[in-house]
Design a protein around this nucleic acid. Structure first.
Length: 688
RNA sequence: GCGCCUAUAGCUCAGUAGGAUAGAGCAUCGGUUUCCUAAACCGAAGGUCGCAGGUUCGAGCCCUGCUGGGCGCACCA
């Protein structure tokens, strides 16, 4: 018995060989330079099971696809694999022999239930860094996407044979942590998460928000004092300001402006109004003026912000804490350790809920100095690449174009010798390859950091690390709130907290579970957790990682339709059928031959052909780093199963042989759903 | 100002390395339960695939331009 699932691949190979032989019989001149056959599922069952678009040979043969298809199909007599062939335009459609194909699909799928691997081991290790939270606040929706994608990617790579090392690089030091610490020192009055009945990370996050709020108040006072009422100036122009700007620059006639004033209520509407009413040239001029004005304001605001930060007492205190932390001040370190412990305790709970696994934890407080040494060494050994400026700062001379992006000089050490973000990441990258014999290193980090990683990998490459081009930034899009609410801002407390989200989902699931009453009381809690998690994860995994996604906390996650619970539901119903099957039927199914060619309904066929694609889908999802491919497939299978179950009775089918065959189909479907969900990190309850 | 990403049904998303008539779900309207879990099933309606060109037997997918949206271009992380 093979230790991995290979029958599908062998079968596809044979199928192609048979097709190739047939084509060669008709076109012997193709011998020697035969291209790979593009085998695709037929668009509809009426046409056939599989199709080959014959364009792929028309260049070689210099015959139209139509004629090729016709000549290949003509007088085909059938063989062990293929029953019949038919040309339809340039497509060669054919049907498989059921008596051979069906048992193959079902038996092979059932082996998944016995724990058979999908692919052989590759004896290669890959490290995946994901999650990487800051320890000053709880994880929010953005982290949830990261965690869910990280785990799913790990599952996929493991499935295709990699040994996967999952790591978390915790950002446990820096000014943001000092902000929480300062607020706690000032206003905490010795409170603890236990005393407040709060999760540790939520507790600490509260002080971070407190700091930011006080800072905002301080900013407002400062701006009001220094700049009068204009303290609250914003970058974007208000309607009045926009109108005034256009008048001041005499860009359009007074009359038009008056009309605009009557018809328009917001800057956005004014924009639309003007675009319609003025010529292209003037419109451009307006756009340019507006941008100019906004740029001017931005610079002004930035200058004022810098000025404020220089004078801010709170910031001064936070910076002082950071300085003492770096100097190893015992008291500060004690507080830091204490607060971080609280946070980790909270994080571990959340990770447990989300089903995250980490094989190794890295802490920036331990790794942040590593990069400095690299820089110092490069400064000596590669002066043409890494050099010091007169102000003491150290730079990398990056140039050229990578992925369409022109590289620029990059700061590696500040004038005072301290390291910056990229310096730390350089050190950690090297550390990873020292700690583990890994072949590749993947970073699951949001797309806003694309440039950072391009720079990082390029620097490592220039420093002579061969593995630099086996580092990969798995970037995923931002999670945004609907209706232009923009980013989730944890500072302002507008972020959707991961724990709150799960709590909310669980409450809704619980209601439904209790209402349905299919779950024994002792299992309700577990099932509720599984279904809520399935809903959340599936919602995220369904979306292509590269794309931004809109998350509407109120509406986004439904338990109906394209959702995790709908897949869990299909699975639960199969388990239910199996539970209700008589023991004699189960025995017969296990012990006797089953005639799967009895499965002749369209609904049954649809499932069989989907099952047959499972290994390919997983392979492709892994190859493309795209869990959404697998997620969509599972949904498709689950839908097909629901249709089948609606129209084909299993236990009530006519005849014991048909009952056996259908039971096999159900269990094969369950096996594939289970394995697929397992890969993605989605739990499947057997009742719900 | 420069660069990267993106634009598919009212909304949220798919679209398999150019291939047959562009698909799901939600929402809307209509139907299905003495039957293995109605978190389901069936049907209707909904589209100039942002706009304009180009490449070829063929383009939602590739190229060019334009427009809208997101992100980036820190001695922040």
């Amino acid at each position: 018995m093979a230790y991995f699932m290979r029958a599908f691949r062998v079968y596809r190979k044979r199928l192609k060989n048979v097709l190739k032989a047939r084509i060669l019989k008709v076109f012997p001149q193709l011998e020697g330079e035969f291209p790979d056959i593009p085998l695709t599922p037929s668009p509809s069952q009426e046409l056939g099971d599989f199709s080959v678009p014959c364009f792929f040979l028309s260049k070689l043969l210099r015959i139209s696809g139509e004629e090729i298809a016709q000549r290949v199909a003509k007088d085909f007599e059938g063989n062990r694999y293929i029953g019949s062939m038919e040309a339809s335009g340039p497509y060669l459609n054919f049907r498989l022999r059921r008596e051979f194909f069906y048992p193959l699909v079902i038996r092979e799928s059932l082996r998944l239930e016995e724990g058979v691997a999908l692919f052989p081991k590759r004896r290669r290790r890959v490290m995946i860094e994901y999650s990487s939270p800051n320890t000053n606040k709880p994880m929010h929706l953005g982290h949830v996407r990261n965690n869910v994608l990280g785990m799913a990617l790990g599952g996929l790579l493991e499935t295709v044979g990699w040994e996967v090392i999952l790591v978390n690089l915790v950002n446990d030091r820096g000014i943001h942590i000092c902000k929480s610490m300062l607020a706690y020192e000032k206003w905490g009055e010795g409170a603890t998460p236990e005393a407040e009945g709060l999760k540790g990370d939520a507790f600490v996050g509260r002080y971070y928000v407190m700091f930011e709020q006080s800072l905002r108040r301080e900013r407002e006072r400062f701006m009001a004092e220094r700049y009068g009422g204009e303290g609250g100036l914003s970058t974007a122009l208000s309607l009045e300001e926009f109108l005034a700007l256009i008048r001041e620059r005499k860009l359009v006639e007074e009359g038009l402006l008056e009309r605009a004033r009557r018809e328009v209520r917001t800057p956005k509407e004014l924009e639309a109004f003007l675009r319609k009413s003025v010529g292209k040239k003037i419109w451009r001029e307006i756009q340019r003026s507006r941008r100019q004005e906004e740029q001017r304001r931005k610079e002004l605001l930035d200058e004022r912000e810098r000025e404020f930060l220089r004078h801010s007492e709170l910031m001064a205190e936070a910076t002082e804490l950071l300085r003492r932390w770096e100097a190893g001040d015992q008291q500060v370190r004690r507080l830091w350790r204490r607060m971080n412990r609280w946070v980790y305790r909270g994080f571990r709970q959340t990770y447990r809920r989300l089903g995250c696994r980490f094989d190794k934890w890295y802490y920036e407080s331990e790794t942040y100095r590593l990069g400095k040494e690299l820089v110092q060494r490069a400064l000596k050994r590669q002066p043409d690449f890494v050099y010091r400026r007169s102000d003491g700062s150290v730079w990398a001379r990056l140039e050229g174009v990578v992925d369409g992006i022109a590289l620029q000089e990059k700061l590696l050490l500040r004038g005072d010798g301290t390291s910056v973000y990229i310096t730390q990441d350089m050190g950690t990258a090297v550390r990873k390859f020292q700690d583990f014999p890994i072949h590749a290193s993947i970073y699951v980090v949001a797309s806003e950091q694309r440039l950072h990683f391009i720079n990082l990998f390029e620097i490592l490459k220039r420093l002579g690390y061969r593995w630099a081009d086996r580092c990969y930034h798995f970037c995923y899009g931002m999670v945004t709130l609907p209706r232009g609410q923009g980013k989730l801002k944890s500072r302002e407390g507008t972020a959707v907290d991961a724990d709150d989200l799960l709590d909310d989902l669980e409450a809704r699931v619980r209601e439904k579970v209790l209402e349905n009453g299919n779950v024994p009381p002792g299992s309700v809690d577990r099932v509720v957790r599984q279904v809520a998690l399935g809903a959340l994860k599936f919602f995220i995994l369904l979306v292509n990682p590269g794309k931004d996604m809109v998350f509407d906390p109120g509406k986004a996650i439904e338990f109906t339709g394209d959702s995790g619970p709908s897949i869990q539901y299909s699975y639960a119903r199969i388990r239910s059928i199996y539970r209700k099957a008589s023991s004699s039927l189960r025995r017969a199914f296990r012990g006797e031959e089953v005639d799967y060619s009895l499965l002749r309904e369209g609904e049954e066929e649809e499932i069989l052909f989907l099952l047959f694609r499972f290994d390919e889908v997983v392979w492709q999802a892994a190859e493309k780093y795209s869990p959404s491919i697998l997620a969509h497939y599972l949904l498709q299978l689950s839908r097909a199963y629901a249709r089948f179950q609606h129209s084909c009775p299993v236990l009530g089918a006519e005849g014991r042989e048909l009952r056996k065959a259908r039971l096999g189909l159900c269990l094969a479907t369950a096996a594939v759903l289970r394995r697929g969900c397992e890969i993605l990190g989605i739990p499947l309850p057997s009742r719900m």
